[in-house]
Design a protein around this nucleic acid. Structure first.
Lengths: 151, 151
DNA sequence: TGCAAATGGTTTCATATGAAACTATAACGG
DNA sequence: CCGTTATAGTTTCATATGAAACCATTTGCA
């Protein structure tokens, strides 16, 4: 049971502090989505993100994947190592530049993708369903504005 | 340079997928805030959160801190160990229940709090400044709705 | 050319994190 | 009372993570 207050110190009210709220809402929904596939497919969040961008853009390099997922290159490198080992991503070497990978989903990768993507969309719908249609529209507009450029 | 598309597979468009956007926006702003105090005060995010709730509610137990910060008890225990060692938080034992801690900021803790809290608020203002006043109001309303109960 | 600087990617190392086991105390049921 | 179960908090262990060092290749330019 909370006791003293300290109005003279202007403490932060976490529960209405926007960055804190964002963090809680974000973690809650991301975790819910992750729970859907984590155990089921032995697939980490970082790995799923990599698969998601490769599903949209075939032939990216690791660096481009990192850009599009907002992950750092170490995380991408590790996710790719696991995905390739599991036969979910194919990697070959760019014919002009031997440093680069050329990445894409394998058939097995697509199979998982086509199972997980609808579940993720479903979770998004569940989240948005808690808002009025008007609020949903505002949220999308606001998030678009707040996304960092190149995000 | 992206190459093939796969419309038949309905790949997720991460950049307009709400859970993904939330995660990016949340991490970007949290990181910006953390950068303000991390090096300056040798203070981790978890530690700052603990300090923030103790600033508002003096005399909480560790479990109550965990509830209010949405952190797990292990994280709280470790944050407290560091904070107590650094002389920023005082901990004594509940006189009725010897398992419980009774926690609060020390003078040194308050000093840091009073420096960090305004910076955090400033970052929040910077974030919101990218939105029209109308959008700011909607965002607050929407986040309040999306926050999990007991969050 | 040829060599310094930049780039793509991986590895290393130190730290962060969470689940589960553990310790100590308190509450409950007979 | 006494044994069982629950609760507060810490420790352990295995994994996740990021910064910096690293290797290979390519680029830029004297």
């Amino acid at each position: 049971m909370p006791v003293k207050r300290h109005p003279d110190h202007a403490p932060l009210e976490l529960e209405s502090f926007v960055p804190y709220q964002l963090s809680i809402v974000s973690n809650t929904v991301s975790q819910a989505i992750a729970d859907d596939y984590q155990a089921r497919h032995d697939l980490g969040v970082t790995e799923w993100r990599v698969m998601a961008v490769l599903a949209r853009f075939d032939g990216l390099s690791a660096r481009e994947v990192a850009e599009r997922t907002a992950m750092d290159k170490v995380a991408v490198s590790r996710a790719l190592a696991r995905l390739v080992a599991a036969g979910r991503v194919r990697r070959h070497i760019h014919h002009d530049d031997k440093r680069r990978s050329v990445l894409g989903l394998t058939a097995a990768g697509w199979k998982i993708h086509d199972e997980v993507a609808p579940m993720a969309r479903q979770r998004e719908r569940q989240l948005l369903a808690r808002l009025a249609p008007e609020e949903q529209a505002w949220l999308r507009r606001i998030l678009d504005k707040l996304m960092p450029p190149e995000g």
